[in-house]
Simulated scan of single mutants.
Amino acid sequence: MSQQSLANCNSLFLMAAFVIAAGIFGVTEASSQIDVDQDLKHLIGRCHRDPGNPDEYNDCMKQVFNDLRAYFTTGVPSYNIQPFDPHQSPYVELRRGDPHGPGSFKLVLRNVSEYGWSRSEVTKFHSDAEDHRIVYAQYFPEKSLEGEYEFVAKLLGTELRRQGHWNMTLYDYSQTTSVRRVGDPGSLLKVHVEVDRIGGMEMHIGNLLQGQSLNQVADGVINSMWQLGLPFVRPMINELVSTAFTDIFNESFRHFPLEKFLS
């Protein structure tokens, strides 16, 4: 395997550790400042790649992530890595259909906050050095999200507009995340997230219908019927989450100076 492939793959491993740890080095007082460089070298060197036994390496990386869960809330300010509990997404957009055709819609989510990462658990980890990719499965006993939404739909010349606050709590939830670097170190990262399971859900969408009583009815329908609609909305959920995390990962990890910590 080429040195460039190793560097790309190691970069993804380190990035994933940050995503799951999200802040092991967030101490700001000089008198108690953790030696970030030494800790990074320790983190990278903790698991050793053995081509003859890749499962041992993958299990080691999974354990590293779960050992660092307590640090999700602080971020790594010295390397511009933002906290992941909660993590923030300022803008995510989803479009379907031709706005000049018979039907279309646009959904914009703003100022989204997501909570629950500190209680999550990585259950599987797999690395693919040749493809510069890592894939990990993650379980959340509870995950909650909130933010503002704007929804515009057109159907046969009739326009519908809604906006307001929304929140959602997911229970017994799991997802699989794939992260791939599309070129040399410093090039873009591509993230794809797949919802694997939702055991329970509670959701509120403000101003979905006109009037408080009708909105309460809408919430009741959504919360009692969401399982029937999930197969249809799952692809859109995957797209929204993948778009948000591609932006977040590139902002925090694209230019991380990996060469400082490789020996």
Rank of each mutant, 00 (worst) to 15 (best):
206 G>S: 09
16 A>T: 15
259 E>L: 08
84 F>T: 01
176 T>A: 02
140 F>H: 07
208 L>N: 07
88 Q>C: 09
168 M>A: 14
167 N>I: 12
119 R>Q: 14
261 F>K: 06
44 I>K: 07
238 N>T: 11
203 M>C: 14
113 S>W: 04
178 S>A: 06
153 A>H: 00
17 A>K: 06
200 G>R: 09
234 R>D: 10
161 R>L: 02
262 L>C: 11
32 S>E: 09
245 F>S: 00
6 L>S: 15
173 Y>K: 10
243 T>G: 10
129 A>L: 12
243 T>F: 10
30 A>C: 06
163 Q>W: 05
4 Q>V: 15
1 M>D: 14
80 N>M: 11
91 Y>I: 13
152 V>R: 07
138 Q>W: 03
185 P>H: 01
216 Q>A: 15
27 V>P: 00
197 R>D: 04
28 T>M: 05
128 D>Q: 02
155 L>D: 03
14 L>D: 05
67 D>P: 07
164 G>N: 04
154 K>E: 05
68 L>D: 13
143 K>H: 04
81 I>W: 04
56 E>P: 00
110 R>A: 11
252 S>V: 12
210 Q>T: 15
231 P>D: 10
117 W>L: 06
171 Y>D: 13
30 A>L: 07
135 V>M: 00
81 I>H: 10
6 L>Q: 10
97 G>C: 06
200 G>K: 05
242 S>T: 01
113 S>N: 13
99 P>V: 09
128 D>S: 10
80 N>F: 14
190 K>I: 00
107 L>Y: 12
160 L>D: 02
183 G>L: 01
255 H>I: 03
25 F>V: 13
133 R>T: 12
91 Y>W: 02
148 E>M: 14
180 R>Y: 04
220 G>K: 02
263 S>Y: 05
170 L>H: 07
15 M>G: 15
161 R>Y: 08
83 P>K: 00
2 S>T: 15
202 E>K: 15
212 Q>C: 08
179 V>G: 03
193 V>W: 00
104 S>M: 01
108 V>F: 02
139 Y>G: 08
223 N>S: 11
214 L>S: 11
159 E>D: 01
232 F>N: 08
116 G>R: 00
158 T>Y: 05
218 A>F: 08
98 D>I: 04
117 W>P: 06
190 K>D: 12
78 S>D: 03
56 E>A: 09
236 M>I: 13
66 N>F: 01
11 S>C: 14
91 Y>C: 09
23 G>P: 08
37 D>H: 07
238 N>L: 11
230 L>G: 14
49 R>Q: 15
32 S>G: 03
61 M>W: 04
144 S>T: 14
2 S>M: 10
202 E>G: 14
166 W>A: 12
102 P>E: 08
203 M>Q: 06
85 D>G: 11
221 V>P: 08
42 H>M: 13
110 R>N: 14
228 L>S: 14
123 T>W: 00
47 C>D: 08
227 Q>V: 15
103 G>D: 01
260 K>H: 13
114 E>G: 03
